[in-house]
Every structure is written in structure tokens, then in C-alpha cells.
């Protein structure tokens, strides 16, 4: 295991009210399995999953947080290290949707400024119990300029694509940073510098 088996490591965080299905989403993504028994997460668990995006092996380290209210203050200290945050609500639970705003504020206060965010409306297989329409989910995401997907960990809807989309958004940013560090850029800059005096003399 000493050999590095990946090109990039992205740290992602799952947050949202208790019982919205954060652990199930992670379990579906990492183990491709689902269990309907509810076990409250008391702390922070993580799983890894390697995906390939644009020829790069990307190791996702996904941190699953406790959703219970008494842990809210303590879990915010984990926001800082995250490059991407999945904010999950339950489409059958109005309160969990209303709390999205609160969670977003938390992210603003505690996460890195350039963190990539995505809102997930989970349990979208439970159509007969739905209380939050897809349109409302889309609206709040649009309002905050955040990606949005409805998912179902149980029926395996959009789980993989959600993580890949978030990872890709982070990759875009990382790639941008890499090209900025590219030595070729220096050459271009130098050329610009050479041009600068000529431009000046042109003006004067």
C-alpha cells in the first residue's frame, strides 16, 4: 500500500439534518448497498472511494457527519478541511428542507470560501410521502447558485452521478490552479512584459 494508488485526493463532507439519509447515501456510493435500519451516526465516519475522471484517478475521502442537533456546533469544526460539501435533506421531511438555509449559513461561516457545494433531496423514491417538490429544491439551489439533484440511496438514483459531478467541479478548480502554476505561463507573462514598453511608446 506504500505505492500511491491515486492522482488526487479530494475530501468531501456530508451534512444535513438527522435521518435524511447521509449515511445511506455514503453506503450506497461506497459499498453499493442499502440498509433500511436507522443507525444514528454519533461522530464522524469516513469511507473512501476511487473514481476516474478525465483519466485521473481521484480518491474521494467522504466524511459522514452526525446530524443530531446537539452535535451541530461540534461538526462545524470539520467543515474547514472539506473541498466539497453535500448538503442533504429529505423530500418527505419539510423541516429538513427548511433547515437547508441554516446549513448554508453554517457553511458560509465555517467552510473554506471556495468549497464546492451541492444540495441533495434524498428519498426521492418515496413519491407518496413527498412534501417538498422538486421545483422547491431547484429554486433554493438556484437562489444560492448551487448544484442540485434529487437522489435515492434506496433505489440508487443519482448517487454516483452526484458524487462524480461534485468531484468534477473540484477537479475543474484544481486544474485551473495547476495551469496557473504551469511554467509555460511564465513564458507568456515574459512575452507580455516585453510587449509592454512597446505598447507604452505607442501611446505616448
Amino acid at each position: 500500500m506504500a505505492k500511491k494508488t491515486y492522482d488526487l485526493l479530494f475530501k468531501l463532507l456530508l451534512i444535513g439534518d438527522s435521518g435524511v439519509g447521509k449515511t445511506c447515501i455514503l453506503f450506497r456510493f461506497s459499498d453499493d448497498a442499502f440498509t433500511s435500519t436507522f443507525i444514528s451516526t454519533i461522530g464522524i465516519d469516513f469511507k473512501i472511494k476511487t473514481v476516474e475522471l478525465r483519466g485521473k484517478k481521484i480518491k474521494l475521502q467522504i466524511w459522514d457527519t452526525a446530524g443530531q442537533e446537539r452535535f451541530h456546533t461540534i461538526t462545524t469544526s470539520y467543515y474547514r478541511g472539506a473541498m466539497g460539501i453535500m448538503l442533504v435533506y429529505d423530500i418527505t421531511n419539510e423541516k429538513s428542507f427548511e433547515n437547508i438555509v441554516k446549513w448554508l449559513r453554517n457553511i458560509d461561516e465555517h467552510a473554506n470560501e471556495d468549497v464546492e457545494k451541492m444540495i441533495l433531496g434524498n428519498k426521492c423514491d418515496m413519491t407518496d410521502k413527498r412534501v417538498v417538490s422538486k421545483e422547491r429544491g431547484e429554486a433554493i439551489a438556484r437562489e444560492h447558485g448551487i448544484r442540485f439533484k434529487e437522489t435515492s440511496a434506496k433505489s440508487n438514483i443519482n448517487i454516483e452521478s452526484a458524487f462524480c459531478e461534485l468531484a468534477e467541479a473540484i477537479l475543474d478548480k484544481t486544474a485551473g490552479r495547476e495551469s496557473a502554476e504551469n511554467p509555460e505561463r511564465v513564458v507568456i507573462d515574459r512575452r507580455n512584459n516585453e510587449k509592454a514598453p512597446a505598447y507604452k511608446s505607442c501611446c505616448s
Binding site: M1, T5, S30, D31, K47, I48, K49, T50, E52, K57
Partner: peptide, 9 residues
């Protein structure tokens, strides 16, 4: 990859 991830998890 899946196997390696599984083993690591």
C-alpha cells in the same frame, strides 16, 4: 479499484 477501496474501508 473497487476491491482496493473495499479493502481500505
Amino acid at each position: 479499484l473497487k476491491l482496493l477501496d473495499k479493502r481500505e474501508n
